[in-house]
Write a protein that binds this DNA or RNA. Structure first.
Lengths: 225, 225
DNA sequence: GGTAGTGGTGACCAGGTGGTCACTTTGTGT
DNA sequence: ACACAAAGTGACCACCTGGTCACCACTACC
């Protein structure tokens, strides 16, 4: 067995946490390349050599964080998946709120995630992203399949496309909870009440669309028959 | 008058273009901080001093590009806004296709835009983003207002929220045309035919939502009355 | 006291960064 | 042929980066 990282594991718990918290902050604020090991050790008040003894390299630091984080990232989804109460759109709404909670309590982790998506050159980027995507895709696909069976979904819509749209809208909702610039007009992070209202609005929109009476004609015909 | 940039403006047109193209490529590939002036001049086969004589600083290079690009970024939107044929959702579909065209013909420019949104530390970031957002917001708001007047929009939906949803779905559609990782399963850039089909699907989804027969009950009641 | 193993240290390194500037080359008008 | 200006050059600078390693301080066992 290689004794990698043994030094770091032996450290007292509070010091470990301080180091990881500081590293998380640094990567969240600056992305990968622009993150500075010098800054980390300076803020931690420890010597640079120590950090490199713990993790071997800058990439080592990031990958350690990364491993710790991925599991936590998936937890909220599992809880929702196992709670089958309500129809598709109610479950979606619960998922949105769970996601918003996660972003609110782990803003730095979510910030790293966003930077990884749009910034190339992160170590492990492809591995990580495909893993996350696959999990999310599987989750939505299950939801959609169940909904389609019980007629909660328009029969003329391709389930794959439905998953695509759900993913798009939900992901964007999450981003708007974290990125100020994505909130039109105000350009600030919304508060909890706004988020709850918006989640409901999103679910309602997903259910019924935006089309007005002029576009309900086809459905009126259905009524007459 | 300050004679800033005069040297660059005096250059023969093809050389100007080569320089700008190379700079665009560099920023698109590496973002702002990670972009290297050394690499630019090496690939261009000119001396570093020349670039700094043209633009003064790295930030100067970026801001020059930036100014050239913003106008081009808005062009497609204007064409759509002035063509009022069709209802809201048909216009949305045209907008989507125009956007996809822009992304396909200016992938580097769009790549820079995406990096700016999710990567802090770009010069002019706030100025630039708020300008773009404002333009996009104004455009959608006009479309929605017109649609609401002629009953193309569900009367019980807040126009502001409608704009929010439209912006989210459309922006995400555009991103999926450029970022491979956002295309579930395949994780590749879609071809033109796929894009056209997907744009239609998006418009249809925006119009009617995803909800199936079980959720059309309220509308059947409308029919009876 | 001796010694082995631990975590901790910071001066130092090679390499890359944006930026400078004294200098050379080129073009043009007379 | 000469002068003058504009364009072009690349060695050089200070600074920062990730990474190294010989050395130090402390504890524990004999």
């Amino acid at each position: 067995m290689e004794s990698r990282n043994q030094t770091f594991e032996n450290l007292p718990g509070d010091k470990r946490e301080r180091v990881l918290a500081e590293a998380t902050r640094e990567f969240a604020e600056h992305g990968y390349h622009q993150a500075s090991v010098n800054r980390m050790v300076q803020r931690l008040g420890i010597a640079k050599g120590s950090l490199f003894k713990y993790f071997g390299s800058k990439q080592g630091i990031f990958e350690y964080l990364f491993g710790q984080t991925v599991a936590e990232f998936k937890k909220p989804l599992k809880a929702i998946r196992d709670d089958a109460s309500g129809d598709l759109f109610e479950r979606i709404e619960r998922t949105l709120l769970a996601g918003a909670d996660f972003v609110a309590t782990h803003p730095l982790v979510y910030s790293i995630y966003l930077k990884m998506v749009y910034q190339e050159g992160f170590p492990m980027r492809d591995t990580f992203l495909s893993e996350i995507r696959r999990a999310s895709d599987k989750f939505l696909r299950t939801l959609v399949a169940n909904a389609a069976e019980s007629g909660q979904l328009r029969p003329d819509i391709d389930p794959d496309m439905a998953v695509l749209h759900l993913d798009a809208v939900m992901d964007r909702f999450l981003q708007s909870c974290a990125v100020a610039a994505l909130n039109p007009g105000v350009a600030t992070i919304p508060d909890r009440a706004t988020i709850r209202a918006r989640a409901r609005g999103v679910a309602d929109f997903l259910r019924h669309g935006l089309g007005g009476p002029l576009h309900q004609q086809s459905k009126e015909i259905q009524c007459k028959s």
